[in-house]
Write a protein that binds this DNA or RNA. Structure first.
Lengths: 209, 209
DNA sequence: AATTTGTTTAATCAAATGATTAAATATTTT
DNA sequence: AAAATATTTAATCATTTGATTAAACAAATT
């Protein structure tokens, strides 16, 4: 072996270089448009290494996808179940965190959503997510609010779609806004910063509408 | 020629069969994942015909894309500028029409948004859209509402992103909702029907928030 | 009917692409 | 240091895929 015992441990293993490169390219171009040679080049190494470390393009992709989903789901789980936060505070955190995160990973939403459509089996085994979301502390607070007549009754999925839609959709539509709307990157970023504060207000208004 | 002068005019020309097949396959799989053979098969004809009628996969795709954008933009333009409608009525029509339309063409949003990211030049020449939207009757009503202090001041793009996001995002997220949320098709459709009425209420609430 | 023009098919090409192999090089173990 | 094991490279395969071609077929024109 080379990696583990080199004098400096600062260098990243070849395997990890490939994973990182694969993540980057897959996220930006999707499975079908990505060529294994793109990944090799991005990682700065020989094509054969991809197949040496990971058996095939499919396997490598599955790994990246699994990792991506993991990150995504974990971050939801944590906020949805923080019992120290009010419903409003959770929405604030969700919007703020996600807008921050998507600012750094703007390709993620389209990647996840289009690859899910291509092959919904990526989600197999993630069925737990339904329970995580629907039985979360967040949902308890929501149902409680309805009982207390402080919140207009609605299907919980509406609420989830609204929060996620208001937060994520602008990033999906960004190419269009920037081109058609003639919106410079900086202006887009600023709008997104504004939304960190606005989305919680809007969600509150929606809940009472 | 065969098509134009056959006894019955009910039959569709070969060219149109190909266009229809191409639209269907491109919309569902995107450019990169679509093979010209898929289209030929879907159209029930020889592969060489694609290249006979349309010069290449790229040309055929460009045509489909142009058609798709055209439809999309036209439908926006009409509603945004119907001077007989109040702002609320416009939102109702937009939500209602789009939910209806997307129910029949659920692949469209991801298709458009991901292909736009792949090559934003599809939008070249559509820069007029900015003016259409920002100088529409709808926007005049919006600005008027702000002046009259009936609407909380906000960047017009926020409003557009909210309306479109609330309407379109659920269709983009549908694969996830159906799989992870364990939501049957019928239940999803019902939720979307509910949203026809709910989105206008929510938007109204957002405008005043 | 004969000719010309347009349409369709089957076969084939060339380039792109995922994958493999055998040899070279480096690292670890003995 | 020698042997064994792990990593990397360059060359090559096999398949897929977009595209073309030459010939067959059909329709329109003369």
């Amino acid at each position: 072996m080379k990696k583990t015992t080199t004098t400096k441990e600062t260098d990243i293993s070849t395997e990890e270089k490939i994973r990182n490169a694969a993540r980057k390219v897959f996220h930006s171009k999707g499975f079908a448009a990505t060529r294994t040679r793109d990944i090799a080049e991005e990682a700065g190494m020989n094509l054969a290494l991809l197949n040496y470390y990971f058996r095939s393009k499919e396997k490598l992709f599955a790994l990246v996808m699994q990792e991506t989903m993991q990150t995504f789901i974990q971050s939801i789980k944590v906020i949805f179940n923080d019992e120290s936060l009010s419903l409003e505070a959770k929405v604030e955190l969700l919007a703020g965190n996600y807008i921050e995160f998507l600012g750094a990973n703007p390709d993620l939403p389209i990647f996840m959503l289009s690859e899910m459509r291509r092959d919904p089996s990526v989600l197999a085994g993630k069925l737990g997510l339904k329970e995580i979301v629907l039985h979360s502390h967040f949902m308890q607070q929501f149902q409680q609010g309805i009982k207390a007549e402080q919140i207009r009754p609605m299907h919980p999925f509406h609420l989830v779609m609204n929060i996620v839609g208001l937060t994520v959709f602008p990033f999906i539509a960004a190419p269009m806004l920037k081109t058609v709307g003639d919106l410079p990157d900086a202006a887009f970023t600023e709008l997104m910063q504004e939304r960190k504060a606005l989305i919680p207000l809007w969600v509150k208004a929606i809940l009472k509408a």
